[in-house]
Design a protein around this nucleic acid. Structure first.
Lengths: 189, 189
DNA sequence: GTCTATAATATGATAGAC
DNA sequence: GTCTATCATATTATAGAC
């Protein structure tokens, strides 16, 4: 039974992501992470030699890969705007488990004044999402500057809904908010 | 020099609030808090016998008092709707330092599955804000149900803007979002 | 690759002097 | 009311067996 992975990389990253979403970066002690993954602390260091910070960065990298594989291709395709937005909403609904999970970009945000790899990855992810959504707005006939603003507004509503849904313990807040997202673009001039 | 408060309750709560906004509940260790307030750990326990949890709850209680004193009277007055909303936006802009501070309701949100006094205070604050904003929407002629939804949307945009502004290190995101808030109500049927 | 054992440090909390 | 000193525990991290 030695030399055998108890949990493969994909499942491990999944458990880590869920843990970070639940308790945040500081709240996710190695003891909590070990409990959540079924691996002992020393095994976690074997998989992530740089400890918790590396775990967080790998989780964020995985988010980037999921976006590259499932979200950006949809938004960049040549399907109708309404279709792209509907698929985006469905994907976000699944990604955040219908509002029952928090956003990693929020829960892994480093303290103010601290500059680390997580902060860069988070900012980069926000920017890439904004660019992808702005391209959809431009496809709908919106000007460049306004497209960036509409994309920004969509990110604001999406992430605000997760915060309010968590704070009020009301996942329906998220459902209502993502249902409004398409109109932000479709109702634009 | 004994028996003299080095920092009065108001200033102490201010420093605590700023610290929690910067690093979150888990990130605010007693060492960090001691550094931020100028009080030693044992002095903090003298002021807050129940430790960090009591500090967080007192900070949230102070938020409630500020809302009672400065926000709810404005929203409940008999001034025009547009005036109320403009003053609300100005107050939020100041409260979050033009998008440079995070929201306590987000940064103090307890881990999922954990039920403590902070969670209750946060949910209560969200509900009171929603009710106050919904009353403004009703004053504008919006029906009861729709008024609640519009108020919810305002909370979503407000808090999402703080998350995105922090994540992108772009306070302007917050400025743009709060500038949109009045239209949510004013453009409603 | 995972485990037990261990070490250095950080953290939450208390006791008692002034 | 604040401080220094202290303590039990938790946390991050490493060493070495299997």
């Amino acid at each position: 039974m030695p030399q055998v992975r108890k949990i493969d990389d994909a499942a491990l990253l999944d458990r880590l992501a869920l843990t970070f979403k639940d308790v945040g970066y500081e709240g996710a002690s190695l003891a909590v992470i070990a409990e959540a993954t079924g691996l002992k602390k020393s095994s976690l260091y074997h998989r992530f030699p740089n400890g918790k910070e590396e775990m967080a960065q790998e989780v964020l990298a995985q988010v980037g890969r999921v976006l590259d594989a499932e979200i950006f291709p949809v938004l960049a395709g040549d399907t109708p705007v309404a279709d792209k937005l509907a698929r985006f909403v469905t994907a976000m609904d699944a990604m955040y488990d219908h509002g029952r999970q928090s956003c990693l970009l929020n829960m892994l945000s480093p303290p103010r004044g601290v500059q680390n790899g997580c902060g860069d990855a988070i900012a980069s992810t926000f920017h890439r999402l904004q660019a992808a959504l702005a391209s959809v707005a431009r496809q709908h006939g919106v000007g460049d500057e306004q497209a960036e603003l509409l994309a920004e507004q969509m990110l604001v509503e999406l992430h605000g809904a997760l915060v309010v849904a968590r704070g009020m313990d009301a996942p329906a807040v998220f459902s209502r908010a993502i249902a409004r997202l398409p109109r932000i673009v479709l109702d634009a001039v």
